[in-house]
Design a binder for these strands. Structure first.
Length: 162
DNA sequence: GCCAACGTTGGC
DNA sequence: GCCAACGTTGGC
C-alpha cells in the first residue's frame, strides 16, 4: 500500500517591526506562541489563507530597525482562522466591510523555534551568492508574508547559525 | 525623519 | 475601468 503523500514543509519570511513585536517578544510569549494578526494586504492574506500550513518554517524578519534582517526562526502551529481584530470596533485593525459570516482577513499562529545569536542583516542577504532572487532582497519588496525557496532557506539558516 | 515604491480608494 | 490622489511600508 502506498504511503499517503505528505506535502513538504515550506519556508516563509514574516516581517515585523521589533518595536511592535520582536523575536524576543515571541520567545517570552505564553507558550512561546503568538497570533500573526493584522495582515491587511490581499496578497499576503492569500498566502496565509491558502498556502501557510502547520509545520511550515518561518524566518522571523525585523524591519524598520537597526539591524534590519532575519532574527530567528519560528514554526506554524495553527493554520488560517479569522483575525478577530477585524471585528473589533475602534481597533487599529478593524475592517467595517468585513462580515463575521465571511471574514476578509485571517491570521495564523506561530511558535518560537530559535533566535540567532546575531541578526543576519539584509545587506548580508543581498551580498550572499544564491540569494539574488530572494524576494526580500529585491528593491521595493513590501510584501509582509513572503515565500522562501528551499535553497534560500538553507543558506539563510546557515548564515544565522554561524 | 525622509521619501521612493507600492497598494488602495474614489471620482468620473 | 481608468488613473490621480492618498495612505502605508520600509530601507536608508
Amino acid at each position: 500500500m502506498a504511503a499517503k503523500k505528505k506535502t513538504e514543509p515550506r519556508t516563509w519570511l514574516f516581517k515585523s517591526e521589533p518595536d511592535v513585536f520582536s523575536i524576543d517578544d515571541l520567545q517570552k510569549a505564553p507558550k512561546q506562541t503568538t497570533s500573526w494578526e493584522g495582515v491587511r494586504n490581499y496578497q499576503a492574506r492569500n498566502l496565509l489563507r491558502d498556502d501557510v500550513k502547520v509545520g511550515d518554517r518561518v524566518l522571523f524578519y525585523h524591519s524598520r530597525t537597526e539591524p534590519i534582517g532575519v532574527a530567528g526562526v519560528a514554526e506554524v502551529v495553527r493554520e488560517a482562522y479569522a483575525d478577530p481584530f477585524q471585528f473589533e470596533a475602534g481597533h487599529k485593525y478593524e475592517d467595517p466591510k468585513s462580515k463575521p459570516e465571511a471574514p476578509t482577513w485571517v491570521t495564523v499562529d506561530i511558535r518560537f523555534v530559535e533566535r540567532f545569536d546575531e541578526v543576519v542583516p539584509l545587506a548580508t542577504l543581498k551580498a550572499t551568492k544564491g540569494l539574488e532572487q530572494m524576494m526580500v532582497t529585491q528593491r521595493g519588496s513590501r510584501l509582509s508574508i513572503q515565500p522562501v525557496r528551499p535553497a534560500e532557506a538553507k543558506i539563510v539558516l546557515k548564515l544565522g547559525r554561524g
